[in-house]
């Protein structure tokens, strides 16, 4: 493939799925842009009563 390739991935959405994807990509050797519309990541899961030990984000 002659086309230039960029070793970065954008993840749009900072919910549980976005955070997991971002972490796996960063650990896999890619630069990650995690883009979230609201002021904090966490998404819908943070609203659930039964929460688990805090998920820290790599960003």
């Amino acid at each position: 493939m002659s086309q230039e390739m960029i070793g970065a991935v954008m993840v749009v959405g900072g919910g549980i799925a976005g955070m997991q994807a971002a972490l796996d990509l960063a650990d896999g050797g890619y630069y990650v842009y995690l883009v979230e519309r609201s002021g904090a990541i966490g998404g819908a899961m943070a609203q659930l009563d039964k929460t688990f030990p805090t998920n820290d984000c790599s960003m």
């Binding site: 960029i6 970065a8 991935v9 997991q20 994807a21 796996d24 890619y30 630069y31």
Partner: peptide
């Protein structure tokens, strides 16, 4: 999400670590 990370990075395997 993990699957998407795999699928999204697979085509970029050649440029892994190029920006980190």
């Amino acid at each position: 999400a993990s699957a998407a990370a795999a699928a999204a990075s697979l085509p970029l395997a050649r440029v892994r670590h190029s920006l980190t």
